[in-house]
């Protein structure tokens, strides 16, 4: 079992979008893509909270939480504090959340 919670808050509009995924319920290619992106960034070993630039205004804040039977790990980042290796995962989750929220 693997679940992903994704939340994006802040931004110029201050609007929150979110996504709850159970990888067991996703088509295998989509689940595989997400698992690959999590592995690529070694997600479970990422620092949990990377603070934003002191003067950044209107940037997005992101929360990604991954849960398995054994472990639960959350990472908070902003557009400016995000490690480059995490960006493909955030972009994919953002796309899925925006698609879900536009339907």
């Amino acid at each position: 079992m693997m679940k992903i919670l994704f939340e994006r808050t802040g931004g110029f509009m201050g609007r929150k979008i979110s996504l709850h995924l159970n990888l067991d319920d996703l088509p295998s290619d989509q689940a595989g893509t997400l698992k690959h992106l999590l592995d690529e960034v070694d997600f479970l070993n990422l620092e949990e909270d990377k603070s934003a630039s002191l003067y950044a205004r209107d940037a997005f804040h992101y929360l990604v939480r991954v849960e398995t039977e054994k472990i639960r790990h959350s990472v908070h980042v902003t557009d400016l504090s995000m490690p480059a290796a995490l960006r493909p995962l955030i972009e994919e989750l953002s796309r899925l959340a925006r698609t879900k929220n536009s339907q």
């Binding site: 931004g11 110029f12 002191l54 003067y55 950044a56 205004r57 997005f60 557009d79 925006r98």
Partner: peptide
Amino acid sequence: KGYDNAFWDG
């Protein structure tokens, strides 16, 4: 890509 926002980075 697909970035629905604008910001000031300091």
